[in-house]
């Protein structure tokens, strides 16, 4: 089935696409047919920057198990680092 359902999020970071690095400003997550992965359905994640055009995109297509393992790995990596170390918010000035 084509689910068409798409979760969109604002992102702040960078990604490396077909023509090199670009600033990532948006993400889209959807469970649907993959373009390339050899499964009927996958969790598809697009890291994009619409202001730079459709080619500014890093696409991944993961199985459900892989996507859940990725979430867990991200959470573990963040938990192992000092809180706020990778935050995009301005840091408070040192006293």
């Amino acid at each position: 089935m084509c689910t068409y359902l798409t979760e969109k999020i604002e992102l702040d970071g960078a990604g490396k696409g077909g023509s090199g690095w670009f600033t990532v400003s948006e993400g889209a997550v959807y469970v649907d047919h993959p373009f390339h992965a050899c499964h009927e359905h996958t969790v598809n994640i697009d890291f994009t920057n619409p202001a730079e055009g459709p080619s500014a995109r890093v696409a991944v297509e993961l199985t459900e198990e892989s996507a859940l393992a990725l979430i867990e790995a991200i959470q573990k990596a963040l938990a192992a680092a000092p809180p706020g170390l990778a935050s995009g918010r301005p840091r408070a000035a040192a006293p």
């Binding site: 798409t6 077909g18 889209a28 959807y30 373009f35 697009d46 459709p54 080619s55 995109r57 696409a59």
Partner: peptide, 20 residues
């Protein structure tokens, strides 16, 4: 309309993000 010279899969992702 998503742009000349853009890969068809990127065009499709852009069109999808706009709701078709």
């Amino acid at each position: 309309r998503e742009g000349a010279g853009v890969a068809p899969d990127d065009q499709a992702a852009a069109a999808r993000a706009k709701g078709g």
